[in-house]
Write a protein that binds this DNA or RNA. Structure first.
Lengths: 303, 303
DNA sequence: AACAATTACGCACCACGTAAGGATA
DNA sequence: TATCCTTACGTGGTGCGTAATTGTT
């Protein structure tokens, strides 16, 4: 049994629904289903009565709930106690991030971290990759989370903490097709981020790998903001390319649609987010702490 | 974090050694190492001081230990409470098993189950596969764990719960070679189990697949007991074939040695242990309970 | 040299998401 | 039929053991 499964379980109990719990936990509904099923197998009995209005606890489930609350609380206390050992209280952490993770992923992460460590003062700064690298080197920020390449002469050793798929986006009212061919890509009006952005650099690489001359494309605008790009695409001014996490909300709301690429294209168009920090020998505990926090899988760091 | 990891952790604390904990938990030593490492990463701090005399808790480790004991105890209470719900107390379970699992694997399993459910009366009967199948059908035993094929007309739906490798064994003083060729196999004096045993049936299949006539072999004896076979082989009377779990103790003590087969041989010589029980619609909770107990991975059912 | 933990590697199983299927008001 | 849960399947990640390596007395 995992602590994590108790968290899923208690969430389900609270909202009386697998699907609602799934969306609260940033999981798919089948994933929640399977965790509950595995708990039911472990304890050898049904824990929820299912019906199409949601779910309710069985009496065995009520028992598990009572104990699960206890275990979760104890474990939370343990984590707070460890924090005290590490002297994390009243310390400060400044995270520098490039635009995509900074705007779309880290806010929730930072919020979660703050919730878990209320006495730590954590700040988030957003900028382009180069600037963040400079600030890490000057120790103006403690941790950087950036896209694109890290020059090796900086001696920063980047570790990849997440990757995100890049996708073509278009207005659902203007574009009916679900797939692009190479030929179509050359005609369609493109709105791109400027070259300060890791996403744009990745797209340029993509063109090279697929042997497409950038001058053969119909680029109608270059912009310096993801929000601006999204507005332009929503208005039907053209097609663009964006990171999945930056557009999932709009796709869900039907303001944007994703157009897939033909299989022929040779690259996978994914972008990696890398973590960098100064490698001090006596690294403050707080940096280790936040780094580990990001690295722990199955804990929904980015939400 | 997993409950299981707390168990590993507390075991290490108690015996002050990764390797000793590993052998108590029926794990390899690197496996324990990695679990502790992953806990240290999770909590962001070292939990043990290592040295070549064993390990000792750091102060953060002491904190984890205090809370871990609490969590483990709470979880154990939860399991007992669930047992009460299922009315498992004072019920009876008879497990029928064929020889290899019954003699070498289940005793510890049954002991563990009894330890976890002290009010359940669990008994273990050992016999040949056919007999166990009959007893399951007559409901003289509640659960069967057997080797070999289950006739489909019994309507028992076997589920494989473990597999074991079959290995050639010889006396380490009589045989120096580490590998057999097909030709050598035909000359060597063989001591085999009789055909009541799943292991022997599997060996016959193995010969067929490799197109070896059983009459071309030098079979010096057939016996009806694994213990007898082992004694004969230890005395240097010949070579035999046995299930890994039945001989690992003797191999460790250097009373027996394993001789591998040449790659040419076409079969893998593994034997499967299958669980069978009557599929009653209102199956007693206790059968479900024991079945799940066997099925739960990572909990070292066979030890 | 001996003992104990770590790292490397390959294999099997588990966790996830997507998509299709099933049950119930 | 709408809503919600379950099953099926493919992919990537985790856990395991074996074997080689490192580190400490």
């Amino acid at each position: 049994m995992k602590i994590y499964q108790f968290q899923i379980f208690t969430t389900v109990v609270k909202v009386k629904s697998f699907s609602k719990a799934a969306s609260l936990l940033y999981l798919s509904q089948p994933a929640v289903s399977k965790h509950i099923k595995s708990m039911e197998e472990y304890y050898g009995t049904r824990l929820f009565n299912r019906n199409n209005q949601g779910v309710s606890l069985t009496s065995a489930g009520q028992t598990v709930y009572d104990y699960a609350k206890n275990i979760l609380q104890t474990h939370e206390e343990l984590e707070k106690e460890i924090d005290k050992h590490l002297n994390l209280e009243n310390s400060q952490l400044i995270v520098g991030s490039s635009v995509t993770p900074g705007d779309y992923l880290l806010p929730c992460t930072v919020w979660t971290f703050k919730d878990k460590h209320p006495k730590i003062d954590i700040k988030l700064q957003i900028g382009h990759t180069e600037d963040i690298i400079k600030k890490v080197l000057k120790e103006e920020v403690n941790i950087g989370i950036v896209e694109g390449e890290i020059p090796s002469e900086t001696n920063l050793k980047p570790t990849t903490i997440m990757h995100d798929k890049l996708k073509f986006i278009a207005s659902p009212t203007e574009y009916e097709q679900d797939i692009f061919t190479i030929e179509e890509l050359k005609d369609i009006p493109l709105i791109l981020l400027n070259e300060d952005f890791g996403i744009r650099q990745k797209f340029n690489q993509f063109l090279e790998i697929n042997e497409i001359d950038i001058n053969s494309l119909n680029i109608v605008a270059e912009m310096g903001s993801i929000t601006a790009i999204k507005s332009a695409v929503e208005s039907g001014l053209g097609v663009s390319i964006a990171s999945h996490s930056a557009i999932k909300k709009e796709v869900y709301q039907d303001l944007l649609k994703v157009i897939n690429m033909q299989n022929k294209f040779k690259d996978r168009l994914t972008i990696e987010f890398k973590l960098i920090h100064q490698n001090q020998t006596d690294q403050p505990n707080i940096i280790t702490r936040f780094t580990k926090f990001l690295n722990i899988q199955n804990e929904h760091i980015f939400c």
